[in-house]
Simulated scan of single mutants.
Amino acid sequence: MHIVFLNSMEKRQDERLIPAKVWIGEERGVWRMGWSEFDAAGQERESIWYEGGSWSEMLHIFRHGLAMKLSDGFRPLIEGVFHEKEAGHRTNAAQKLICYSELHGNEELYNELAVWRRKKASGERKAPYFIASNRVLRLISTFVPQTVEELLQLPGVGDSKVQEYGQELLQFTSGMKREHTFPLDWVYRQLDDEAFMSWFYKQKENKYKQDLDQYKIRRSILEGISAGVSLEQLEEQHATSRRELVELLEQLEQEGYDTDALIESELAHMSEEEKAAVWKAYEELGDTLLKPVLQHVYGTDIPADQSLDQLYEKLRMIRIRYRRQASARLDVG
């Protein structure tokens, strides 16, 4: 086997160093990738992470697996993996503040803020994250800002957020005792470098896990299209909502994949008259927004046997076809 990538790693544990290595090899068009770790007796234990013909799949698995090891405390002897030198030594103020807040949060205050956000979102008919993200609430609960100027020093809090909700947020922190003051420069001195790096790689692990799951779903959809699998079956296989699956179909279509077999199957019970009405609405109103098309075709008379989500699903699928035809016309022109 021809080794095309190798990096040595080590982890300090109980006053000893645990050596390891991550590697990628190729032989006759088959990629192999794995992790080798040495125990206290010096015995090597090898785990194969991937073996197959897909470089793209292997890369997704490599990123996720390596991020897991890095978040567990392993560090590369040769820097360059995930740009960890840059992440470790560059002054990244926002990331370090977020890290500190997640490691030293005030759960009681955080929960109070979360209750306020939920009520606010319900009253304004907004998604809760439009009011404030979980990270913003963590930052507030940890650093306890008591003035507008202090609130603005937190990552994710801008002028518009302060104008809308600043005074309400400060009502929770006004007069509270706190161990530290603003400005927050002390965080960069107090936060342990190793704790920050483990947290940093944990964020990458979570991201790469999402990327890997997304990749597997995309591949499954493409295989399912060839095999005649329905959206319902894909939904059961991956515990993914139909809306997310249809959005993935839109992405695959944009990337040049042919999704029409699955679309044809899902729209089989839709009348030709209804399809024509939706198509005409796209021609007249454009295909950017779905709500005007929905109202144009169905008005306020939503069919009794269908939900609003089902109607939007059909509109999305017909929009895939509409955009494909519009793109084909542009290519010809």
Rank of each mutant, 00 (worst) to 15 (best):
L109Q: 03
W199A: 00
L311C: 08
M58W: 00
I18L: 13
N92G: 04
I18E: 07
K120Y: 08
A94T: 01
A41N: 05
Q306E: 06
R219G: 00
R16T: 11
N106M: 09
D213E: 09
R324H: 13
S8D: 09
A276P: 03
R243A: 07
W49Q: 01
R189P: 02
I221G: 07
Q13N: 07
L290I: 13
K119T: 10
Y298M: 11
E247C: 10
S241W: 04
S226A: 15
P19C: 05
L6T: 07
Y50K: 12
S265F: 12
T147Q: 14
Y257N: 11
Y110T: 03
A20G: 10
L285C: 08
A67H: 00
E250P: 01
Y298S: 10
R16G: 01
E236Q: 15
E79R: 15
R135E: 12
Q233R: 14
K177S: 04
R135Q: 11
D72A: 15
Q214I: 01
E51I: 14
H269M: 08
G53A: 09
D260M: 10
K96E: 09
L170R: 02
A20V: 01
S71E: 04
Q306H: 05
L97F: 04
E164G: 02
V293I: 12
A261C: 05
A227W: 08
F74E: 01
K161Y: 04
R28S: 10
G29S: 03
V4A: 00
D309G: 01
Q214K: 06
R90A: 02
G52Q: 09
Q295Y: 15
D260E: 12
S47V: 07
L169K: 01
E232Y: 08
P145A: 11
A41Q: 06
E84A: 06
S230Y: 03
I78T: 05
A132Y: 01
E236G: 12
T91S: 02
F38W: 03
D287Y: 14
I98L: 06
I217L: 15
V157F: 02
K275L: 15
E107K: 13
H83M: 08
L109M: 11
E284F: 00
F200S: 08
H296F: 08
G34K: 04
E313T: 13
G224D: 11
E247K: 15
F38M: 06
A261W: 10
E51A: 08
L311F: 05
G88T: 00
V246P: 08
G228Y: 14
W55M: 09
K126V: 05
L66T: 03
K291L: 14
F200K: 03
S226W: 03
M197D: 02
A132N: 01
I24P: 13
K126G: 02
W49L: 12
